[in-house]
Design a protein around this nucleic acid. Sequence first.
DNA 1: ACCGGTACGTACCGGCGGTATGTGAGATAC
DNA 2: GTATCTCACATACCGCCGGTACGTACCGGT
Lengths: 196, 196
Amino acid sequence: MRTRRAEYSESTRQALVDSAVHLFTKRGYAGTSLDEVVKRARVTKGALYHHFSGKQALFEAAFTQVETQSISSLTALITADGDAWETAVGGLRAYVRKCLEPEYQRIIVHEAPVVMGWERWREAEEQFSFGLLRTAVQLLVDAGEIEEAPVEIMARLLFGALSAGASTIASSSDPKRTGREVERAILRVLEGLRKK
Amino acid sequence: MRTRRAEYSESTRQALVDSAVHLFTKRGYAGTSLDEVVKRARVTKGALYHHFSGKQALFEAAFTQVETQSISSLTALITADGDAWETAVGGLRAYVRKCLEPEYQRIIVHEAPVVMGWERWREAEEQFSFGLLRTAVQLLVDAGEIEEAPVEIMARLLFGALSAGASTIASSSDPKRTGREVERAILRVLEGLRKK
DNA sequence: ACCGGTACGTACCGGCGGTATGTGAGATAC
DNA sequence: GTATCTCACATACCGCCGGTACGTACCGGT
């Protein structure tokens, strides 16, 4: 059942999400009006409220789209075979790079916890960035690379450190240099946790 | 020049800030209307806009008040004489406890970066929590407790980890237990950085 | 060809942030 | 003491925005 109407509908929905991602990235959630969103998508608010229950739902759709696009390549990296430590370091580097993209920076790192509420955000992140990071930490523990520890807590702390690092890089006057410094600093933290 | 009018004025300003702190903590920035704020302070919007240029300025006043009250005791702890390592650990414990207070949690940790904008927030935090943390890290480096490193970056990462830990504790079903786990986890990270 | 339902568009509402202006109590000058 | 000035508010109003109610055109099945 692949009708034309369904295609049109999906297309307008996609246009709305794309518009939302663009504007939320540029002006933030509170600074973006739905009139702007629908204008950019060349529809009206009727279309928006047909596809989404409100502004929050639209934000969650934008959130999900950005996260989905971002996570797929990282998951492949993390779950690949090979030395656990090297794999984790590679994933770390990739994640830091991902955090530098404006869309990820603003929508996922900065605004999502406030807009969605911490509880809902935490729940949603289980299947995205945070879930991936926890998996990576668990793999390191299983491989005996770092000492036993409450994985949940460690993953939370690492997640916070990574986010702060990404923000630091993004607002730096010399992002490339700061990026290298952040990477090295996180690596030193990880090395400190490593079994001898 | 200590006139009655000046005292009244300062009193109403303080009532507005107190009201703002209470409501921003309870319902967040976006969820709080200025009508509610002025109603609770038993004044009108005229008074509010006489003392503050707008909602954002009111938030910054609330931010400053919460931070100022929070920081003073911590500063005394950190700058005290004695073993640098023990002092730092004590400061860490005190900061984690501070992050458990709802006002600090919501206004300072969660909403400030989004409401004030990351750049402005970063600038303001220089003289509050973050500045204090950087001082602590610098003291540890000076005392030779941890290896030389870019203090700025390390402080940023630690700050992010602490914030994430505080959020985790606050939304935990068993905050006291989670609090101990977070403290132990951060201590392990610090121990990993410590010189042998 | 007709009908049913979906995918929108249109018009409107209530609330909120912000502003322009009025006003009265307290400070000031004589 | 009283006239005047000033400033700390109060009042009334505006425009914008999120959300809703309702109208409508068009596609798809029969």
